[in-house]
Structures are given as C-alpha cells and as structure tokens.
Amino acid sequence: MSPGRTSVVASLADAVGGIPDGATVGIGGAVTAGHPMALVRALARRGPRELTLVVPVAGIEVDILVAAGCVARVIGSYVGAEKVAAVGPVFRRAVQEGSVEVVDLDEAHVVAGLRAAGQGLPFLPWRGGVGTSYPQLNPALVEFDDPVRGERLLAVPALELDVALLYSEVSDAYGNAQPVGTAHMDALLGAAAARVVLQVDRVVSTDEIRRRPEATLFWRETAVVRAPFGTHPYSNAWLTADEEHLRAFVAAGRAGGEELSGYMTTHVDGPADHDAYLEAVGIRRIASLLI
C-alpha cells in the first residue's frame, strides 16, 4: 500500500525562510495583476540582503523590497504602477542614488533568458534590440553574427533563478497550480528556478485539479503557501486592484523618509503575519474590491 503523497504546503515564514543573502529571486505577475504580494511582504520582513530580482513587468513589489533594503540589482523590462505612477518611486530613487543597479532587458529578452535557463542552455538568440542601446546598458547581451544565415543577433544569457515567487488562485497540496488567466510569465519563471514558492488563495483537492488538467502548471520543487487575498493591493480572479492603496503607496514612496517608513511599518514590518496584514487593510476595504 502507498504511504500516501507528501504535502508541500508550507507556512509563509518557512517558505521564504530559506532565501539567503545574494540570492537571485524571480517574482511573477505583471504590472497590477497576480503578484505574490504576501510572499513579497514576508520576504521584506525577513530582510535578506543583496538580492537580485528578476521581474518581467514589475509593480510595487520591487519598491517594497528596495525600501526594505533587500535589493542590490533589478533585472527586467519595466518597474512602475501604470497610470498611478509611470515609474516605481522607491525603485527610481534608489537607482538614481546608485544604491540599486538596474539591468535592462526587453520583455522578449526576459522570455528568451528564462527559456534558456529552463532548457539548460547558456543563451538563446533574439533579434529585437539589435541597433538599440541594450548591449551598451547590459553588456551581458552579446551581439553576434549567427552561424546559419549570418544575421546580426543578440545572445540573451540564461536567467537562472535560485527561487521563483509565484501566485496562483488555486493549487492542490502537491503543487499542482491552476491559475486563472494567462499567468503572465510565471510558467517560465518556475522552469528557470531551482525551486518555486507558490502563493495561493485556495488549496483544493486533487480531484478538483483533475477536472481541468489542461490548466495545470507544475514545477519540480514547489512549496505551496495559502494566503487568501494575498495579491492585495493587486488583482487576482476575484479581486480588483486597490487603486486607492496604490496611490497612497506611491505618494509615500515619492515622499520617502517617515511617510515611506510609515507605510512599511503599517503594511510590511508591523503585521506579524498575513492575517494581521489583512486586518490592517480592513475587511471593508477587501470586500469593496471583490468583483
């Protein structure tokens, strides 16, 4: 008789506890949707240093980790808050002060780099970016003449991740994720990572997963963390983005100083756990965001 399958459900603290100083951390989601914000806040609370973030199209998760002093380098194609802020305010200040390095990639370079890592290749070629400032800004992108047709191309190096922090609306206890929608670049981030920490709203039975096997994503090493409404202030399938909260964060981020540390105290460092974060936000606010 089978000894039974092994649950990979972990606590928030345990799941981010093993991320050391200097790690390369991918974070999923895109702009205002599907970022694993409960994981991000837990990581910021724990406070590893000198992280390299790989963020395809990022939002304030980068600003929060920069504000917590965790970040040395940001690799990606965008950090901003859409119409709320053209550029992530804490990110922008840190980059302009020189305390955080930014490594620019085109969105398609991120895809190519993650794929190369997932496929175990040193690089993949890409055309977009030839003739632009990318090779100057990011010397890791090497221009070369391809050996088949002799065309000028860029070699996009593999983006190998120590860990990918991802979000899915549901998974089972064994790491079978069924995100709603496209899940952005999350499948690729997971494939490029040595391990995945998956934040979910619901941990469902595997029978429920089996009803839609075509929707399942899975990775080799996965820890599942249940954090209901944990994408707040960003959206998921049931929750719209909290524009008012984002505006308040952007204002605090631009002001810096006490205003930013006030936000961090109330929403990141202060709450002992994810439930305490939700209490700080308030049930009325959360309920108002439900679609």
């Binding site: 199209v57 990606g76 194609s77 965008y78 950090v79 901003g80 053209a86 550029v87 992530g88 990110f91 922008r92 980059v95 302009q96 020189g98 930014v102 620019d104 085109d106 969105e107 398609a108 370079h109 890409w126 055309r127 977009g128 970016g129 632009t132 990318y134």
Partner: peptide, 15 residues
C-alpha cells in the same frame, strides 16, 4: 548611473 530613470522599455525593441 542615472540622472533620471524611466520605467524601462517593455517590449519596444522587439515590437
């Protein structure tokens, strides 16, 4: 370094 940092160039190069 950066005098003024923008948001990043998304997929402009490729598109």
């Amino acid at each position: 370094g950066w005098k003024m940092r923008g948001p990043g160039s998304l997929a402009l190069a490729t598109m």
